[in-house]
Amino acid sequence: MHPLQSLRFDLPCLAAAAAACLLLPPAARAQVALAEVLYDPAGSDDELEWIELVNEGETPVDLASWSLGWGGASWAGDRVALTGVIEPGQHFVVGGPRSAAENASPVLDLPLDFEADLQNSGATADGVALFDVPVAEVGAETLPVSVVVYGGENTSGLFDETGAVASVDVGDAPGGSSIERGDDGVWRVQAAPTPGAPPQPVPEPARFVLAAAATAALVGVRRAR
């Protein structure tokens, strides 16, 4: 048989295989993200800080080859390896290892002490980064899969998921407050931390604020006349 004849018979199989590949779900590594960080608990920070992850995908993710990095100068400075499986929709809390009123009493999925405490920030921004590679492979140029930068200006040049210098996501949280990513993707200071739970609803403008704005607009129109 001529080679081209056999190729004709194989083409339907190749087309079916290609279609099956297109229908495969995206890689699980892209579905886990940072959700909330308590870097400055009320009182002492030691053994009370935590970082919350969320699995926004539809399949479980084994965190055995994932890691966290944090700091102000580089993501490669302070790092820790992750373990455990995070189920679809699950909020997964890493840190502690103590759970107390000072850190909103989290149920810790991975209890561990951040031996170099998370940075409390100030005029210079600090941040936390999530990596989908083992901790030993995180270097100064390793791209994270999820980042939050908080505090003042990012003068250290901490980079985001694309490798570009990251914008500051949220200001510095006062002691006892966390920073949390809302359903709209915006990071906010959360006065009442919610470890292990979905984010608080995005606050809507109060009615009296809207009424005041409407009144001011009417006054402006009348004056213009």
Rank of each mutant, 00 (worst) to 15 (best):
Ile51Pro: 03
Glu180Cys: 12
Gln31Asn: 13
Ala42Leu: 14
Val54Pro: 08
Ser44Lys: 13
Phe131Ala: 11
Val61Ser: 07
Pro144Val: 04
Gly122Asp: 08
Arg225Phe: 12
Val202Pro: 00
Ser44Leu: 13
Pro25Thr: 01
Ser167Leu: 13
Phe92Arg: 06
Arg222Leu: 15
Ala100Lys: 08
Val93Ala: 02
Glu204Ala: 14
Gly72Asp: 06
Ala140Trp: 03
Gly171His: 05
Leu218Asp: 06
Trp70Asp: 04
Thr124Gly: 06
Ala211Met: 14
Phe208Trp: 15
Ala20Met: 09
Pro106Ile: 09
Gly71His: 07
Val189Cys: 03
Ala212His: 02
Glu47Cys: 08
His2Leu: 10
Pro193His: 00
Arg8Phe: 14
Ala211Phe: 13
Ala166Ser: 13
Val148Phe: 03
Ala129Met: 04
Asp169Val: 02
Arg188Ser: 08
Gly96Glu: 05
Ala15Cys: 11
Trp187Tyr: 04
Ala211Glu: 14
Leu11Ile: 15
Phe114Ile: 06
Tyr150Lys: 09
Leu48Trp: 01
Ala33Lys: 13
Gly152Val: 04
Val85Asn: 08
Ala191Val: 11
Gly95Val: 07
Ala216Cys: 08
Gln5Leu: 15
Leu48Thr: 01
Leu7Asp: 10
Ala76Gly: 04
Asp132Tyr: 02
Asp117Trp: 01
Glu47Ser: 14
Arg29Thr: 11
Val221Leu: 15
Thr59Glu: 15
Glu87Cys: 08
Gly89Asn: 01
Pro41Arg: 06
Ala217Phe: 12
Pro205Cys: 06
Glu58Ala: 13
Leu82His: 06
Trp50Gln: 08
Phe114Gly: 07
Ser44Asn: 12
Pro88Asn: 06
Ala197Ser: 13
Gly127Leu: 10
Ala27Gln: 10
Ser6Lys: 09
Ala64Asn: 08
Val128Gly: 04
Gly122Met: 01
Phe114Trp: 06
Gln190Asp: 13
Glu180Leu: 06
Glu102Phe: 00
Ser167Lys: 12
Leu4Trp: 09
Pro12Val: 09
Ala166Asn: 02
Ala136Cys: 00
Val186Gln: 14
Thr142Leu: 01
Val128Asp: 03
Ala125His: 05
Gly69Ile: 02
His2Pro: 14
Leu108Asp: 00
Val186Ile: 15
Leu34Val: 03
Ala206Lys: 11
Asp62Ile: 00
Ala101Asp: 12
Tyr150His: 10
Phe208Ala: 13
Val165Asp: 10
Gly182Val: 03
Glu161Tyr: 00
Arg181Tyr: 04
Pro199Leu: 10
Pro106Ala: 07
Gly182Asn: 02
Leu63Met: 13
Pro88Leu: 07
Glu47Tyr: 10
Ala166Asp: 01
Thr83Ile: 00
Trp66Ser: 12
Leu112Asn: 09
